[in-house]
């Protein structure tokens, strides 16, 4: 068996040493990427402040109503969103299909007042109507909270929530929620559940969709011909280009 010379051995050590450094460096870099990535994907429960409930349980007329599995559990579980997700819609500009409201003003939709009492909501007239919130810039959306009316239990019809890149909803329109089961509002047949309004509001998954404009449709409700909104909250983060 041939014994390597000392020079050879020295050179071999150098080579191995260099490889080790490369391996270590690569490992460190990979770890750094992993940690950063893990930080990026870290999920936290979305903190939602609920308004005061104005009716206890379900009122007499609707005992046992189970429209949406979320309603079934009575209390909605934690909704996880990426860390750093924040409320984007506060005080943002609201426009609507009908600039003349029946009750209140459009800015009440994003004023932070979620209480159900008179004076906290605005209403648009009969038929299919929409409100639209301009976030000011393109954002990644993770959750949309809607409170139509929660003074008494009622169901709003044909609730459709869309996000788009332009104010006219022509470019890159994506539907996040649609419970118009017979397409009577003409935005396509929706597969989502109808739901009873309570102080818990309705949480709609933003799915990380990117967009600047959010539009919410409804077509009257089971109590009257109006389209009410107490508050809409849009949660997200600045979109990564």
């Amino acid at each position: 068996m041939r014994v390597p010379s000392e020079t050879y051995n020295r050179q071999l050590v150098k080579i191995r040493h260099g490889q080790s450094i490369k391996v270590v460096m690569t490992g460190v870099m990979m770890a750094a990427v992993f940690v950063c990535s893990a930080q990026e994907d870290k999920k936290v429960a979305l903190p939602i402040t609920l308004p005061k409930a104005l009716f206890e349980g379900t009122p007499g007329g609707i005992q046992g109503v189970r429209l949406d599995p979320v309603n079934k559990a009575k209390k909605r579980g934690a909704f996880m969103v990426p860390a750093g997700t924040a409320l984007l819609s506060s005080k943002k500009t609201v426009t609507a299909s009908d600039p003349v409201t029946l009750v209140g003003t459009l800015d009440q939709v994003t004023d932070g007042d979620k209480e159900g009492a008179d004076g906290s909501f605005m209403a648009l007239g009969p038929g299919s109507q929409w409100i639209q919130i301009d976030l000011g810039s393109t954002e990644s959306l993770y959750a949309i909270m809607v409170w139509h009316y929660h003074k008494m239990a009622r169901v709003y019809r044909d609730v459709v929530v869309q996000v788009a890149d332009d104010a006219d909803f022509i470019t890159n329109v994506r539907t996040l929620f649609n419970n118009d089961s017979d397409n009577s509002s003409g935005l396509g047949i929706g597969r989502d559940y109808e739901y009873i309004e309570t102080n818990e509001g309705k949480l709609i998954d933003g799915r990380g969709e990117k967009g600047r404009y959010v539009r919410l449709y409804s077509k009257e409700n089971t109590a009257d011909g109006a389209n009410h909104y107490i508050e809409v909250e849009i949660y997200g983060k600045p979109a990564v280009k």
Binding site: P59, G60, G61, I62, Q63, G64, V65, R66, L67, M152, A153, R154, V155, S181, E194, I196, N221, T222, A223, D224
Partner: peptide
């Protein structure tokens, strides 16, 4: 609305569900 689930359990076949108001507090 309060009898929806027991009613469904006695029906044969599948049904589409809808909700309508009768009075302001009755669905």
């Amino acid at each position: 609305a309060g009898q929806k689930d027991p009613v469904r359990s006695r029906l044969a076949g599948d049904y589409q569900e809808e909700y309508y108001g009768l009075r302001p507090d009755v669905l």
